[in-house]
Simulated scan of single mutants.
Amino acid sequence: MGAVGFMGSLAALLVLENLAPPPSSLVGYALTRGAMAAIATWVFLPSFVLTLIPGLLAIAATPAFHNSGWAWIKAATGILIFAGGLHALAPIQDEARLSAEAVAGRLDPATLAGASEGEAATMWVLLAVSTANIVLGVWRPRIIR
Rank of each mutant, 00 (worst) to 15 (best):
V43D: 01
I59F: 13
A61R: 15
V49Q: 02
W70K: 08
L50W: 09
A58S: 13
K74M: 09
P63A: 06
W42I: 09
A76T: 05
E95Y: 04
R97G: 10
I79W: 07
D94N: 06
V49S: 05
T77S: 15
W70C: 08
L89V: 07
A58T: 08
L57F: 10
S47Y: 00
P46M: 03
T41W: 04
T62N: 15
P91E: 03
I53V: 15
Q93Y: 03
A90M: 12
P54Y: 03
G85Y: 05
I73D: 09
A90N: 11
I92E: 01
R97Q: 14
A88Q: 05
L86Y: 11
A96F: 12
T41N: 08
I73N: 08
A90H: 06
G85V: 01
L52N: 02
I53Y: 09
T62W: 03
L57V: 15
A90R: 10
S47C: 07
A61I: 05
W42E: 09
T77Q: 08
A64W: 00
H87W: 15
H66A: 13
G69P: 13
S68I: 05
W42H: 13
L56Y: 02
L86F: 15
L89F: 14
L45P: 01
F48K: 11
H66L: 06
I59T: 12
A83N: 07
A83D: 07
N67A: 07
A64E: 14
A64F: 02
T77R: 11
T77I: 13
G55E: 09
I92S: 02
I92D: 04
N67K: 12
W70R: 09
I53C: 06
P46K: 00
T41A: 11
K74E: 12
A64H: 06
I73F: 14
A60W: 14
H87Y: 15
A61Y: 10
L57K: 09
L56G: 01
S68R: 12
K74W: 10
W70D: 07
S47V: 05
T51W: 02
A88K: 01
L56F: 02
Q93W: 08
L56S: 02
T62F: 07
G69H: 04
A58P: 05
H66P: 03
L45Q: 10
A96H: 09
G78L: 04
I81P: 01
H66I: 00
T51C: 08
F82S: 02
T62D: 15
